[in-house]
Design a protein around this nucleic acid. Structure first.
Lengths: 235, 235
DNA sequence: GCTTGACAGATTGACAGACAATCTCAAAAG
DNA sequence: CTTTTGAGATTGTCTGTCAATCTGTCAAGC
């Protein structure tokens, strides 16, 4: 017997995955991991072969990504992985700073112990990833993702949550373009710890400030790298 | 000869409307105007008959609205016009306040005369709509929409722009649930004028403050009305 | 009378196939 | 070398089909 049927009837699973959502998520991951590169055209039939699903399903999944800004569809030319200019990258970080600043403020105001605990756990794991001579970048990325999840979820605002997710996705995509920066990790760790402390202390203004500072520092590093790689490409 | 072909080859028209985008826009308008009510289920075949397009196109349009949060699709039960709880409405206004505060700040910082001019024009028309004994609500709504468009576009941030549009759409949808409040119009006019003045003067902090104040005042009015209508429904 | 269960109708999820409109790119013509 | 033309590729859209799932009704049982 199919176990899923059983679960659905008893536990009332909310999020029954449909083919289109699975495909959409797979495409998202492929884009963020760099398998599908920015600017690359997404030919529908190729995606059908890759995923083994029909064109209608592929197209519906593409509409979801389109609305997220992950792919750009121009009529009669088809969808392509979104590219981002230096100026747009600036705007992206500015938008993220605003929203994450708000999230930090709200976390501090609400003072949910569970949120602070989750952040603390993520920080511990993040530090642990750097305890060895050879940092475990995979574990570090996971820990950081979890920290952000706590921050974003902790603000108790579904709209801010929904808006920040695509922004983070596109920043991940942005990092693919340039390279990952292991050097900034230490500084980043200090910034994130400061966020946690501010939130735990319930200082709203400080929490917002720390979040904005962190995003702006990340922006400087990322934009600098993009600028450099662009100049390198030219020269 | 087809004139459109000519235009496209020469002017490179960006936004060639496709059936799915037309349908999506039509549905958006139908939802915002109250033709399709919150909670109402959207049966695909009915939408086909209404719009005269096929099911796949309808479905693609629905994915776009789904990503905007305009409709809510639960697997195997189909899409329905999004409903919003009182708590969610609070969160919606909070998110709008953050983003519009940023937009105001940026408009003040950038000091684009064209933006100030456009806002001024919208304000003039907004005032004119109230110059008669019987206010022209239609004209007022249009003027206000134009004012917001100037504010949102003036911040020069495509991400903030893209995020604010769905929020405004859902607030419009929210107003349908409760009734429109002509009484608040005068107060609202004063608030909006204050935003304009702050932006024109280039005072970033003040512009942000005025935008946040305005949204929060609108939130109080809207939430109060929702609460009252909800209580009325119960009693 | 109320709950439970089963059945039929309705609806969505997903697929295959088809065709016109449009884009792209390379070869041919000037 | 530039422009034009044309073939191939790709998207936009439609029709039709079938299985899986939901919903509401109606009868059976407590």
């Amino acid at each position: 017997m199919d176990r899923r049927t059983d679960l659905k009837s008893t536990l009332r699973i909310e999020d029954v995955p449909t083919v289109r959502t699975i495909v959409a998520q797979k495409l998202r991951e492929a884009i963020m991991s760099g398998t599908l590169k920015p600017g690359q055209r997404l030919v529908e039939r190729e995606l059908c072969e890759m995923t083994g699903v029909s064109r209608p399903s592929i197209r519906e999944a593409l509409r979801l990504l389109e609305a997220d800004g992950m792919v750009n569809t121009v009529p009669h030319r088809g969808p392509a992985v979104s590219t981002i200019s230096l100026e747009e990258a600036r705007q992206l970080y500015a938008a993220r700073a605003v929203l994450e600043g708000f999230a930090g403020r709200e976390c501090a105001r609400l003072r949910d112990p569970a949120v602070a605990r989750r952040m603390g756990g993520a920080l511990t794991r993040l530090k642990a990833a750097f305890a060895f001579a050879k940092p475990d970048m995979m574990a570090a990325l996971e820990a950081k993702t979890d920290f952000y999840a706590a921050l974003i979820g902790g603000c108790q605002n579904v709209f801010v949550e929904r808006m920040l997710r695509p922004l983070h996705d596109r920043i991940t995509l942005l990092r693919i373009t340039s390279m990952s920066q292991p050097k900034r990790m230490n500084k980043s760790l200090r910034e994130v710890t400061a966020i946690w402390r501010a939130i735990r202390s319930g200082n709203e203004d400080l929490a917002e400030r720390r979040c904005v500072d962190h995003v702006e520092a990340a922006a400087v590093a990322a934009l600098d790298m993009i600028e450099r790689s662009a100049a390198k490409g030219k020269g």
